[in-house]
């Protein structure tokens, strides 16, 4: 089995000043009827560097509950993860106050 490679890195958007908005954004992946389950697991492993077991756990949450809260991060980091997940065409968004 091949080793997990470094996550894809997209350009990070411009630096933003610290604000109250940086206290926490939830990165959420939403269910859709088109992405293959194995593909979603693969993407979680690539983007977050998770083990297969952890990636599968979140994939099954998406599948069974319609969504999974993947990580909670600052505004900039949350945007970075949403960019990466959407570059794989997963339905990912960031939500404040989740």
């Amino acid at each position: 089995m091949p080793t997990t490679e470094e996550p894809l890195v997209l350009p990070i958007t411009q630096a933003k000043p610290q604000s109250e908005h940086d206290s926490g954004y939830a990165v959420i992946c939403w269910d859709d009827p088109i992405n293959l389950m194995d593909y979603v697991t693969h993407v979680f492993q690539r983007v977050f560097g998770w083990t297969k077991e952890r990636a599968e756990h979140h994939m099954m949450e998406v599948h069974n509950n319609g969504r999974s809260l993947l990580v909670r991060e600052t505004l900039e980091k949350a945007e970075h993860f949403v960019h990466q997940l959407q570059s794989y065409n997963l339905q990912a968004t960031m939500e404040r106050g989740e």
Binding site: W30, V82, Q86, T93, R96
Partner: peptide, 9 residues
Amino acid sequence: RELTRSDDH
């Protein structure tokens, strides 16, 4: 493509 599903962002 959208960054969020909330209306208040």
